[in-house]
Design a protein around this nucleic acid. Structure first.
Length: 376
DNA sequence: AATACGGGGAC
DNA sequence: GTCCCAGTATT
């Protein structure tokens, strides 16, 4: 185990002149290097809020097109509050973490009902909104309202950890506490909107996880880790997770031109989204799975079917699972649908919000068996 | 303090 | 393949 120097050295108040210098250099750098991002074109609190929620654990380039579409469909908080949740989820499809979309929609209703349609401008009130945590609240207060509120997220955790050469675990409770304090201490009295965005931008473009561009960093001579030569030896700012393999089956039950879909319940993964009947399977391979498929489709939908050929196998990762999804054909035999289940024409699947694998399978259904084979 | 929650980009 | 991403809520 490597001996680290005493953490107490990291707890010292930051030098006032050092802080001024850091702020000045950071802002000068940002003035030159800020990216043109759609959510930076105005400080409308609604736009900032939507962008911040979309950006939670999601990369900027991934969010960009989603943000544009979402704002076109729901240009203000009233429009979002009045929207149908299915429409909101459909626009969120592919972005992941669908609870964000449901929370955002619920919070929009909260804002209309409890705050006269005005997005709150203080952290404490923002924290009462669904899906708004300490980071997002701080981001809205600082970026949209240009008022002092610290932020701490992936980019700035890494940046600040290096800047002060934090020698504990940045992901620990103590580490987070310290880094939030640093974020607050660095915050200028004025210009918090630009400052916080600049902090994140520097983390995203220069103070990167791998191969940070220290030679071009405006804070190079102020950075304690750079001075110590520990930039790439500090404790990681993210936790790694181990994957578990899982085998699942999805079943395309056909009844004439229709296929069977079910809506995921509020307490399961993909809550609110639709998917083909889908479940974990124990049996090995198509020849042995039929009885199990029949039983589980019936249990999940109330419908009896006759399972047939394997259509395709889809591999994908979701949260901590590495899933191998076997997709089977089946024909309807009998039985009535239970609650959240319905028959849908394949062409109409475009209107439903589906999981990524559900969408992949839905797209395949547009083709004949022979065309699918040719696609490999 | 640990875990659940998605999907895709970058290497 | 692995790592990571403008986190939040729940247990």
């Amino acid at each position: 185990m490597t001996r680290r120097s005493a953490p107490s050295a990291n707890e010292d108040p930051l030098d006032a002149e050092w802080k001024r210098s850091f702020r000045r250099r950071l802002l000068a750098w940002y003035a030159k290097h800020a990216r043109d991002l759609p959510w930076r074109r105005s400080r409308d609190p609604y736009r900032v809020w939507v962008s911040e929620v979309m950006l939670q654990q999601t990369q900027v380039e991934t969010v960009r097109p989603y943000f544009e579409r979402f704002m076109a469909a729901f240009p203000n908080v009233a429009a979002l509050a009045e929207a149908d949740e299915q429409a909101v989820l459909r626009l969120w499809e592919g972005l992941g973490y669908y609870r964000r979309a449901r929370s955002l929609h619920a919070a929009a209703k909260q804002v209309v009902a409890d705050h006269a349609g005005q997005i709150p401008g203080d952290v404490a009130t923002l924290l009462t909104l669904a899906g708004v945590g300490r980071y997002t609240a701080g981001a809205i207060v600082s970026i949209a309202y240009d008022r002092p509120a610290p932020i701490l997220e992936a980019n700035t955790i890494r940046l600040l950890t290096r800047l002060i050469a934090y020698n504990g675990e940045p992901t620990s409770t103590a580490g987070q506490k310290r880094l939030w304090a640093v974020a607050e201490e660095l915050l200028p009295a004025k210009g918090c909107s630009t400052f916080n965005q600049a902090l994140m931008e520097l983390g995203a473009l220069v103070c990167t996880p791998a191969a940070p561009r220290c030679e071009t960093c405006p804070a190079e001579t102020l950075c304690r880790a750079r001075a110590e030569g520990t930039v790439e030896r500090l404790a990681p700012t993210t936790k790694k997770l181990k994957f578990t393999d899982a085998r699942e089956a999805a079943v395309v039950v056909r009844k004439g031109a229709m296929v069977l879909l079910r809506q995921c319940g509020p307490d399961e993964r993909w809550a609110g989204l639709w998917d083909f009947p889908r479940f974990a399977i124990d049996a090995e391979g198509p020849l042995f799975a039929k009885d199990e498929l029949r039983d589980k489709v019936r249990g999940q939908t109330g419908v009896a079917c006759d399972p047939g050929a394997l259509i395709t196998t889809i591999k994908h990762g979701v949260t901590r699972f590495r899933i191998t999804l076997e997709c089977y054909e089946a024909t309807y035999k009998s039985g009535r649908l239970n609650g959240a289940t319905k028959w849908v024409r394949p062409a109409d699947l475009t209107e439903l919000p589906l999981s990524a694998t559900g969408r992949k399978l839905a797209k395949l259904l547009q083709f004949t068996t022979k065309e699918r084979r040719n696609k490999g």
